[in-house]
Amino acid sequence: MKTIAELLREHPFFRDLAQADLEFIGGCGENAIYATGDYLARENEPADHFFVIRSGKVAVETYLPDRGPLCLQTLHDGDIFGWSWLFPPYVWTFDARALDEVHAIRLGGKCLREKCEGEPRLGFQLMKRFARIATERLQAARIQLLDVYGQSPPPQGDTW
């Protein structure tokens, strides 16, 4: 069986990290299995982990009193979930719920952020990688906001 560090090495997110760093990150990680409906994260609860989704589908959700859970985005095999552990106050902003059986590597954000404070080089490496994911998600969210597939606003004047 592969160690967590070995599994991480195969993921593009961790590519080219120093072996010692990978060992450290892997050292505070564990394999986790979530059944359908299980929460990986819940809004306002302490965010002490992040996840590499190995298989399965995760919904990033928020909850509306009159509508119930509202899915903002789905995450799938290979996706990374969770950056709230990096920033105070270290609590989740959204829910993350397994939509089917999810196999994930749950990594210890809490021990990692303490290590990063002392090792800015590793901190910067991780920050760059999370920033990339954050910008990709921001970009996607912006395109979603544009509602490109929606009906255009009623055109003015004489049109076809």
Partner: peptide
């Protein structure tokens, strides 16, 4: 103005 009109503008 409407020479290049496509859905929306």
């Amino acid at each position: 103005a409407d020479f290049t009109y496509i859905t929306g503008g």
